[in-house]
Design a protein around this nucleic acid. Structure first.
Lengths: 350, 350
DNA sequence: GTCTTCTGTGCATGCGCATGCATGAAAGGG
DNA sequence: CCCTTTCATGCATGCGCATGCACAGAAGAC
């Protein structure tokens, strides 16, 4: 026998469907073309119109759906974006996630959730495994090495709502200093001089900057913030709740309390309710974020609107841009906050 | 020249790293082993201890992370679960998602979000693309063909919170008939005879069954539900809000209103607040779900607890089981609801 | 009618990892 | 000391798709 031709690894003669999922080979066989032609037809590459129809008909008949895994491997793209969130039960992140997801879905991307854990290395590994084309970080602490690491691995990333000191990746944040100044100015204007605050964690940019702007603006007006009327807590409902109770029970009970976000503020409003404290007659409470819930009648919370939807959509935009062009210049977009006056603020009781 | 040996597709002689991401071949070269050995070492397959250490050291040095796409293609597993949600802004689904995600994360699975759209075929295609090992459906309508389609494609699925008529896939739901009966019984016990309701969509199992149980129990006591005091609406805050206003403005204003879920109930409580209606003096409102928020002081909502966390965790369990064993018997788990009496219910005003 | 573009499709191959099988080395048994 | 096991690793290959290249046929140019 003469020398065998090198055996084809897999030509048209591939085994007929082995019961597994339908592949492009199955479609090719039925349509009487080769697998690459199926690939091209499915994605709108150039094929003759008549061929395209044959392929699509065959695909339809077999219920063929191109495999994500195969496509990802070949294209090095997953059309999936990771969103890292610390606590999904925080309603603010929910609103962020919703707006973010909506924009990405329009662009044909899916969202995969990652929980922020203490173990940044483990998280980084998960993110680096190639399961996502880009990453949005929403719950960073200031000292996080994550943005840096993403940049080094050339994995597109965007910081949403919070930021770090360095500008390693694109960022979209509210001008937290300016926003909290608005609150201070409002309180001063209303005549408050005994002021308290429930700040967020100092190791977050929002926690730090909202405290900074607030303190600065008060200081400029000669108003001091008594330590006994201040708390620094995690951004949770329970923390806001407990912090407010501590503040109103302190010997330096203020006439107004600024809460560094609406989750805290709503916790505080609930605490006030539990003590029979009327807002704004007995106490003024102002929040930050303007969550959807804050406008509900039972709260009707005066707060700082930062345009959560806009922020999320902008972040999505930044991320999509970077996925397309990894070498685009790094940008930092700041949205302008605005005070929304509702009914939890008023002049201090004489 | 004699016949060439069949050229190796890719032996150790593979091109040195081409700048792309680090692969198992890169690690193999550095560790002085072959790629399969790297694969085995990384996953804890049997390799000599000394080899494992060499491989891990090389991986560490290169910052190697196994590629999800490659692994998925080879194993036909993604370690990813899809969750289909209609509206992420619904706080109830958020709680479901949180609990579900937590349980899955423990099992090493990630969660990818899919939005329920009108186009079930498109959704099915997305789900079938192999991007996920299983699917949880949370926002089904009764006539959805999705569960059936999943079964046909042998894609593991679980219905969470809502169900369809057929038992095509595993299900975990609350006993909605029993739960709503509890509400009716409570209202009767309090002495209400003029009763209203804000029901959910009749094309959902929760909407249908909660209406059913409620009506039945009232009817057994000889109490009729006047149509003018009833509404059937989407499960949104705004719907609950508007529905309550319509009901209290109707000529048949009831003394108590059952809302088919807490999202509706909280909308209703807000509406009551906006009209200066005191709860429970002027009106009794009872919800269903016992969301976290419902216990807040400003609401303190009497409602039906169905153990959302348990339900989500159970659904996760069912799904994981089916991923492991696609031929396991189909199960339907029903959780027992329980009435949680807080402060929005009371006797009717004499 | 010949020569040059296009166009449509097939062929070969790679993406990164997992795994059945073969092989050689080390360990154990008599 | 030889033969049988066991163990560790290499080899070959497949998973499903995308894509550069080659090639044949059609269309156009002259």
């Amino acid at each position: 026998m003469a020398e065998q031709p090198i055996p084809r690894k897999r030509a048209q003669g591939r085994l007929p469907s082995k019961g597994g999922p339908v592949t492009s080979y199955d479609v090719a066989r039925l349509a009487g073309v080769t697998q690459p032609t199926v690939s091209r037809a499915m994605r709108g590459d150039r094929v003759a119109e008549i061929t395209r129809l044959r392929v699509l008909a065959a695909a339809e008949q077999l219920g063929y759906v191109p495999s994500d895994a195969g496509r990802s491997l070949a294209t090095r793209r997953t059309n999936r974006i990771g969103v890292v969130v610390a606590d999904l039960r925080n309603h603010f992140y929910l609103e962020v996630l919703t707006a973010f997801e909506r924009r990405l879905a329009e662009a044909g991307f899916q969202v995969t959730l990652f929980r922020q854990t203490d173990d940044e290395d483990a998280l980084l590994s998960q993110l680096s495994a190639g399961g996502v084309d880009g990453v949005a970080l929403t719950s960073l602490t200031l000292d996080s090495r994550l943005p840096r690491a993403l940049r080094e691995r050339r994995l597109p990333g965007v910081l949403l709502n919070r930021e770090t000191g360095r500008l390693d990746v694109d960022v979209c944040v509210s001008d937290n200093v300016a926003g909290s100044r608005l609150v201070a100015e409002r309180l001063l204007e209303l005549g408050h001089r005994k002021v308290g605050a429930v700040f967020g964690p100092a190791d977050t940019s929002t926690g730090r900057d909202r405290a900074l702007g607030f303190r600065e603006a008060l200081a400029e007006a000669g108003v001091a913030l008594h330590p006994a009327a201040c708390r620094e807590v995690e951004y949770t409902h329970a923390s806001g709740h407990d912090a407010l109770l501590g503040i109103v029970d302190s010997p330096h009970r203020p006439t107004a309390v600024f809460c560094a976000n609406d989750v805290l503020a709503i916790g505080a409003v609930n605490a006030a309710k539990s003590r029979g404290i009327s807002l704004p007659e007995d106490l003024t409470i102002i929040g930050y974020d303007d969550m959807e819930m804050s406008a509900w009648e039972v709260f009707d919370l005066t707060t700082v609107r930062q345009g959560t939807e806009t922020m999320a959509a902008t972040a999505a935009e930044l991320l999509l841009r970077r996925v397309e062009d990894p070498d685009a210049e790094v940008r930092r977009v700041v949205v302008r906050p605005e005070l929304v006056i509702r009914s939890t603020d008023g002049p201090p009781r004489p």
